[in-house]
Each structure stands twice: as structure tokens, then as C-alpha cells.
């Protein structure tokens, strides 16, 4: 079953074409990587899928409905959650509150019901706390649940952002450089975590990453962007041996 399709996506900022004629199909359950040199347009693709940009041209479909043009919060509710390249937690809030917020978009209690703490809201609040605790256990942060989110070390902040994204109940997870700034140990743990979450939560993952070892190991399919254009697509093995990819990353081979 195809979960997400992007057809002929183009994004222009004034005269600059950031992404040109981008096409993507993601099957349910896949882990797909999006790689390319800096400035290739990877994050722009993410921002279009997640609703931060409206594509200049092209259509994005998620489970049979067109989502391009919807606002970010609607897209999250539809089942696409994301993390950010530069971690964006709610700084003054506690770790558990950061995750509980992810459930807010799913509660049925009205504003008045929540203020007056009617029975429905109390049940939902319990659901939020229990759910958030469960997710924190999942990513190994239950010990620090009451601490301030920004007091956590970098690697844990990344995992917290992941837990927060999961709280929205996504089917597709967009991870923008999840392993950035991590040491090899942490990267390995993250890899195992993502694989485990995929099975437990029935997830499909699209990720951007510069750590090639990580990408080659975790992704089933990779798409390579350079200057906004797709230059290659295939399995990790095919990508590693693709001359255009090598050229984009290392520069053209000079013939002697």
C-alpha cells in the first residue's frame, strides 16, 4: 500500500528553485532516506510534506487525500509527525509535558470541559499522562520525566523530540538529521530505537541524514538530491556505487 506520494514537486523562493520536479512514493512500513550535499533541498522537501511550505507546483497525497496546501497542524493530525534539524523542544516545560502536548491534538474535551475538569477530560488527562509515560519508557527517559526539557543532554533531547512526535499518533515519521551530533554509540542506539519503534508503532519513516553509515544501515531505499534535482534513487548498495552520487559528494573525477 502506498502511504505517501509526491508528484512533480517544485519549490521556488523568488528566483531560486530550491526543489525541482521531485517525485517520491513511500510504501507503508518502509524506511526511506533522503540524502544530498548541504543546500540540496532536503529540508525544503520535508517542509513541503509537513505543511510549512506550500509547493509552488505539484501535489502531495497521503493515504488517498491531497495534503499539499494544508496547514502544518492539520497534516500532523492527518498522521505525519516530524522532528527538526535543530532540536525544537518547549524549553521551559518539563520532559513529560513536552510529550503530553503531543496528545493534545487528539483529545475530544472542549476548552470548557478541560477548564472545569469534567469527567471526560479527567479520563483524557489520565490517558495523556499514561501515554506520555509509556513513550518516555520506550525512549528511555522515564527517569527524567519531571525535569526541564532543556536541561537534558543533547542525545536525550533528540530522543525526547522523537517521543513527542510519536505522541501525535503518526503513521509517517519525518526525521530531519536524527543522528546529527551523536557519537557512534548513541547513533547505534538510535538506529535500534528507530527500528524497534517502527515495528511497535507500525511506522513508516522518511529521514534526512548525513551520517552515511547510519543511512546505509537503516534505509531500505535512498533518494539523492543535488541542487534541488533528484540525481539517483535505489537501494543503499546501488547508491554507494552510483557515479553521479560520488561526483555530487566528492566532485568530478579528473582524468589524467
Amino acid at each position: 500500500m502506498i502511504l505517501l506520494t509526491a508528484e512533480a514537486l517544485t519549490m521556488r523562493f523568488g528566483g531560486l528553485v530550491a526543489v525541482n520536479d521531485f517525485n517520491l512514493h513511500i510504501e507503508k512500513g518502509e524506511i526511506v532516506g533522503l540524502i544530498g550535499p548541504n543546500g540540496a533541498g532536503k529540508t525544503t522537501v520535508f517542509n513541503m510534506i509537513a505543511g510549512y511550505y506550500t509547493p509552488s507546483e505539484g501535489v502531495i497525497r497521503f493515504r488517498d487525500s491531497v495534503i499539499s496546501g494544508l496547514k502544518a497542524n492539520r497534516i500532523t493530525k492527518a498522521g505525519i509527525a516530524r522532528t527538526f534539524q535543530n532540536i525544537r523542544l518547549f524549553s521551559e516545560l518539563s520532559v513529560i509535558e513536552n510529550v503530553m502536548i503531543g496528545y493534545h491534538c487528539r483529545i475530544r474535551s472542549s476548552f470548557f470541559g478541560a477548564t472545569l475538569r469534567l469527567p471526560l477530560y479527567r479520563r483524557e488527562e489520565k490517558m495523556m499522562v499514561d501515554g506520555a509515560m509509556k513513550l518516555l519508557r520506550e525512549v528511555g527517559l522515564e527517569e527524567v520525566a519531571r525535569e526541564r526539557s532543556t536541561s537534558l543532554p543533547y542525545g536525550k533531547q533528540r530522543r525526547l523530540e522523537l517521543a513527542r512526535a510519536l505522541a501525535t499518533g503518526p503513521q509517517l515519521l519525518l526525521l530531519d538529521e536524527p543522528a546529527a551530533g551523536m557519537n557512534p554509540n548513541e547513533t547505534q542506539e538510535l538506529l535500534e530505537l528507530i527500528l524497534r519503534l517502527r515495528t511497535d508503532y507500525d511506522l513508516t519513516v522518511l529521514l534526512i541524514e548525513h551520517d552515511m553509515k547510519f543511512v546505509m544501515e537503516i534505509c531500505e531505499r535512498i533518494k539523492v538530491l543535488d541542487y534541488g534535482t533528484t540525481i539517483a534513487e535505489g537501494t543503499p548498495h546501488e547508491i554507494q556505487n552510483n557515479p553521479r552520487v560520488i561526483e555530487a559528494y566528492l566532485g568530478e573525477v579528473q582524468r589524467a
Binding site: T76, A81, E92, I101, H104, C105
Partner: peptide, 15 residues
Amino acid sequence: KAIKYDEAAAEAVGI
């Protein structure tokens, strides 16, 4: 509060 700390991130969690 989430909106106060980071509006873009708040939208990302469906707010």
C-alpha cells in the same frame, strides 16, 4: 505555553 516557546514546533505536534 507551547506556542509561546516555539510556534513552529507547536504546529508540528498538531496544535
